[in-house]
Design a protein around this nucleic acid. Sequence first.
RNA 1: GUCCCCGUCGUCUAGCCCGGCCUAGGACAUCGCCCUUUCACGGCGGUAACACGGGUUCAAAUCCCGUCGGGGACGCCA
Length: 502
Amino acid sequence: MAQNEIVRVRFAPSPTGQLHIGNVRTALFNWLFARQKRGTFILRIEDTDLERSEARYETQLMDDLKWLGIDWDEGPDVGGPYPPYRQSDKMDVYRGYAERLIKEQKAYYCFCSAEELERDRQQAMAEQRQPNYSGKCRNLDPAEVERRRSSGEPAAIRLKIPEHPIRFYDIVRGDVEFSNEVVSDPIIVRSSGMPIYNYVVVIDDADMKITHVIRGDDHISNTPKQVAVYEALGLPVPEFAHLSTILGPDRERLSKRHGATSMANFREMGILPEALMNYLALLGWAPSGGDREIFSKEELIKEFDLERVNPAPAVFDTEKLHWLNRHYIKQSPPDRIHQMGTEMLQRADLLPASVNGSVSGWANALIDLLAPYVDQLNQLRDKAKIIFNHDPISALALPENAEAFANDKGKAVARAFAKRASSESPLTPERFKAIMDEVKAETGAKGKDLFHPVRIMLIGSHSGPDFNKLIPVIEDGSRLELPVHVKSVRERVEESVAALEN
RNA sequence: GUCCCCGUCGUCUAGCCCGGCCUAGGACAUCGCCCUUUCACGGCGGUAACACGGGUUCAAAUCCCGUCGGGGACGCCA
């Protein structure tokens, strides 16, 4: 790349479904590269496959990208100097170039039927040969071509692959070379007249003056065909960077059966955008030194380096994403987490559709109580069960809880605590502490033996949030009008003791 | 099957291009200890890797060859 060349990169998704996390990483790497080089980042919609493309996916993909924090300088919504930014709006251009290639004898009509080609392919595989196109239409007599064309026989257009090896430079992998023997003449225009991806991508990239093509490495085998198109058209070949595939824990390409794979999934789960961005950046890239994990958007832009991208495929690790997400939850301004958490709880019908006044304040306290315990914000729903679903009978039946009451001491603690707590309404953290001291003195229980029975009575589990924060949330919640009644401390201990005595 | 790509702790990776500073560093996970009158958070510490086999070299995780393993592509999909 020339010293003062302005970097122009693009992210070119097909609107055929939810944005896959692997594609999001591709978008991110393009964007980071552009922002660091003070270049241009372009969004282009590749919708030549009319069968599968849908407008709603296009809207959603733009929405998802913005959510992550990626913006674009040129695109279908914002325009730019090299329109159109949606391939379906550009058919005439592709057709024009194809006619030129035919005229220059760099491409030719192919009359082979899809069935015929499929048969050849199967046979080649069976004979352990490279399944290449035979080239049978390559040297058809021009008069015959003309006759068949004018009789209306359907024909696709194929590009002639040159008789020399095709080389290109890949920033991630270095020099790559393909023997021309393994690259067969590709179809560039379907018999229906619709052009093919490998062909239009080149024209679009050239028209948009793309300098670096950064994309998934599933395209690496397509690259020689595209280079051939550049050469046939006499267009400058950009630099490439092929990013490795993201794998699931079983080392297979990450797919739906591994769980969450789309942007939408992560959003719904309550993964913060900065956590996702940070995690994705670390998948296949690490700063020199490799001893930093936390990067803000600005730091990523500053530090990111395409040359340091790892060519080996990377396994997606949800645990590490969760670690980053917990980090960013803790770092977030409380208001933001309150708002996101409230929405999560509303969706679960645990909070009223409209939250204000005392309910709002209480909801915030509830979220503060639970948020430190979640990996992703939608886990708030489950964690909130300790407040909304108090059920002593099933709690006592749990094996890990039974232990706390296995000896008489546990029951004695429960009774001693219940006796005192029942007469306090509401119970305050100060009184709670005093009561615990009394229970300790009366029963001789301390540490685990003292706290576990009490905690199980209150929330049905021997582990959970700090009592000083927990008790006010329970007591305040019990006096609010909520979709699900929150039992008071008194209700909880009385029901628990009753269950215990049976 | 053919071609292409890849191979450092369980996982993400630093180191590899420019051999010695690597008795291989960091992070997640895991285990232990401390803190906490419980739990979590936090702090401290531990276990854990150069796929294998040949070269080249005084010296190889680093260079070369082979084997094995993994992934991808082979479409009138993108």
